[in-house]
Nucleic acid binder design. Structure first.
Length: 308
DNA sequence: AGCCAGGCAAGTG
DNA sequence: CACTTGCATGGC
């Protein structure tokens, strides 16, 4: 077993592991202590989190386990390989958070949210898992989205042994495509089941891959991703922001739309494309997705309920 | 019991 | 293009 420490002092700005992995941007990290996933602040002590990275992101080309825990300014990790680089990349630890904050804006909502979750980073999740989890996210609560991803892993993901325990990788595109709509309905996906089955088949067949939009200009990339079944502008923005590193993407979900109505009514331009352009400018341009994610987490945990 | 959840697709006007 | 409707399931 490999292990190591990432000291926040090496990074540009603070780190808050719990806010990063429990703010609804990634569904690939599980808390080890078995407590409810999204009960922010309810755990005692510093919990371990674990994930299984896909073979496409490991040196062995096989799924590998990573465990991680924050103690003050230090991130302790354990893994089946030298995972320091992968962790830094996957959790946005290489982002210059201090510089990003300077472009996020200073209105009350943004300032309150940033102060509440100082150290929250934007993740770079494995693209296929990110795509599936946000297809599943339609009309579902964050806690349930996370539960569904775990159900998919347990039922359809490869077993990975590590340190005497068994973990599950996220299902491959072929595994989800082969499972088909009926099996995915059995696992609780509801009307999203055919969306996941069809989009997984597109990837398994080599017809399309979320990674294929890398290099495209932002709005082009978003439009391309809507070629997947079950992916509209909002889910496409989630994949761009939480997986592909498009930090300007601002997913216009119900929480953000209600925040726009309440706090930035001049940014409501009536269409997704135009409202997106306006709020992106208000939220700091190239780093607007960071602002969105702080605002989302703050609204969902401390702010008022959406009215939309 | 009814309403709602990190929406999307298909169908109208 | 704007607007409406149907869609699974679980928690409050």
């Amino acid at each position: 077993m490999d292990a190591g420490v990432i000291d926040a002092a090496e990074l540009d700005g603070p780190v808050d592991l719990q806010a990063t992995v429990e703010s609804g941007q990634t569904y690939r990290w599980d808390r080890f202590d078995g407590q409810a996933y999204s009960t922010v602040g309810a755990h005692g002590g510093d919990p371990w989190y674990h994930t299984v990275l896909p073979g496409s992101e490991t040196p062995t080309n096989e799924p590998e386990v990573v465990r991680l825990r924050q103690e003050n300014g230090r991130l302790n990790w354990e893994a089946s390989f030298d995972a320091a680089g992968a962790i830094r990349q996957n959790l946005g630890l290489e982002d210059d958070l201090a510089a990003i904050r300077a472009e996020m804006g200073n209105d009350p909502l943004v300032s309150r949210a940033y102060d509440a979750f100082r150290g929250l980073r934007i993740v770079r999740d494995p693209p296929f898992a990110c795509l599936v989890s946000f297809i599943c996210s339609a009309q579902m609560r964050v806690e349930r989205i996370h539960g569904l991803q775990r159900a998919l892993e347990r039922a359809l993901g490869a077993e990975v042994a590590f340190d005497g325990e068994t973990y599950h990788a996220f299902p491959t595109p072929a595994a989800l495509a082969d499972a088909g709509e009926s099996r995915l309905r059995e696992l609780g996906l509801g009307y999203r089941a055919p969306y996941v089955a069809e989009s997984a088949a597109m990837v398994a067949d080599g017809e399309f891959h979320p990674r294929a939009v890398l290099g495209c200009e932002y709005e082009t990339a978003r439009a391309e991703l809507t070629g997947f079944v079950g992916v509209g502008d909002k889910v496409a923005d989630c994949v761009l922001l939480f997986s592909l590193g498009y930090l300007q993407a601002v997913p216009l979900d119900t929480w953000i739309q209600s925040a726009i109505a309440e706090h930035y009514p001049d940014c409501d331009r009536g269409s997704y494309t135009e409202t997106s352009r306006a709020i992106r400018e208000r939220f700091g341009g190239r780093y607007a997705g960071y602002t969105q994610t702080y605002a989302f987490h703050w609204l969902r945990t401390a702010g008022s309920s959406p009215t939309a």
